[in-house]
Design a protein around this nucleic acid. Structure first.
Lengths: 229, 229
DNA sequence: GAATTAAATATACGCTGTATATTTACAGTG
DNA sequence: CACTGTAAATATACAGCGTATATTTAATTC
């Protein structure tokens, strides 16, 4: 039997492949992702996957886009769960949601912000929209602070010529964001990412302090440094 | 010929293997590390490596320890290049050195702080001494600030019971460090790591700002938040 | 009903880490 | 100097991987 009859086939195999991939990533981590293992679990042969994804990297790219979308959903949801006027509340909400999502889906976090797949390099142009959207929540809140005159920072380094194109791309995707907001949002992102990535990789607990306390302290530090009350 | 005469053998093969491994990591990145490729380059067979390292992970562990040692050297050197009394100068020096080392050896940085080797989990007990030493420079400077009454932070979250053993281990390795210094040093480390890791992974340039400016701004933010002048 | 297309299998290649058995250079001892 | 034991290498093999190619057949279309 070279090809099973439609009745015995898995409907929507493309989705089934991605679903199985996520399952295996959750169970054994992203580096263990294997097309052959996916095929085994789905009772198909490995090359069959090539009908749906040109190669392994294409599958990984899809997974990354899905992860960014899930992450972005949680960020936007957190932001919009707080009244528009309560900017500080919105900031804290997305801050908490950031870490919560990372802890809920550590492998997805690694997939997005780490480099856990051996030879894989994400194609920026494909991943960009979903990644830009996911960080949009933070950018928009910072921009709201600035528009309301509540941002303490007013100086910022100029955009480097060689990055200007990227910068413009960002602005086109995210909407009008003042450079100072852009700069502050990046700084905040780096701080939040610093703690969370150390936590996720298991480098924080050895230091004796729970990530909870450290993280809340840091969110507070950020608010006190950048927000006028 | 099953075994070449001593004259044709490579002297100190253990070191030669590590050296070749570093060369390949520098050229093709850590994920591409392959025992067979190392063996090819050394004109030996792959199983010969097993006379010097029980398996691939043992080799990787050695490389990680070497990387931590190199990193620690650069940190301690930076600290000691500034007079003991000039605490702020020492802080900036190790801050600058941190990023400089990371940019000089991005693959080593990834090897230490990322997870670029597929199935590899570092054995904490083996890596701990060199890793603790490498971060000791920062801890010691923060502790000096505290001892001199120049640390602004005075509250800190208590150490969680489940992490107490790790915390004690750290103190035994690093020397007497007040919990508040411990806490502040961790926060600083997380901030510095946040920017640098985003940079190294190429997630920063798309935002339009050079890492230089962002990093210096952050070092300044840290100093202003935690150091009384 | 025939031709076309799409989706699967079958097979194969070169790569990986590594387990096992075998060979041989060398060191130590009588 | 001959013998023996050990250590360090090779040879071989196995199971896994991604993926290229050719083949087969179910389903669709004219």
């Amino acid at each position: 039997m070279v090809r099973p009859t439609r009745k015995k086939q898995i409907p929507n195999l493309q989705e089934a492949i991605k679903k199985t991939a996520w399952k295996q990533i959750a169970e054994h981590g992203a580096p263990a992702l294997s097309l052959r293992a996916i095929a085994r679990e789905l009772n198909i042969t490995a090359p069959a996957i090539y009908n749906y994804f040109p190669d392994r990297d294409a599958l990984v790219t899809e997974l990354i886009i899905d992860a960014f979308t899930s992450f972005g959903d949680s960020q936007l949801e957190a932001r919009d769960s707080v009244a528009t006027e309560d900017l500080t509340g919105r900031f804290k909400a997305i801050g908490i949601a950031y870490r919560k999502w990372a802890h809920g889906y550590p492998q997805r976090y690694q997939l997005i912000f780490g480099t856990p797949i051996p030879g894989y390099e994400p194609p920026v142009e494909k991943v960009f929209p979903s990644s830009a959207r996911s960080i949009m929540a933070l950018f928009s809140v910072v921009e709201s602070f600035r528009a309301a005159g509540k941002l303490t920072a007013n100086t910022y380094p100029s955009v480097k010529k060689e990055y200007q194109a990227h910068f413009d791309l960002w602005r086109s995707q995210i909407g009008e964001v003042h450079p100072v907001s852009h700069f502050v949002a990046m700084l905040i992102w780096a701080r939040v990412h610093g703690i969370v990535s150390l936590e996720i990789q298991g480098n924080l607990p050895p230091f004796g302090t729970s990530g909870d306390d450290l993280y809340l302290y840091e969110l507070d530090s950020i608010a006190r440094q950048f927000i006028k009350d």
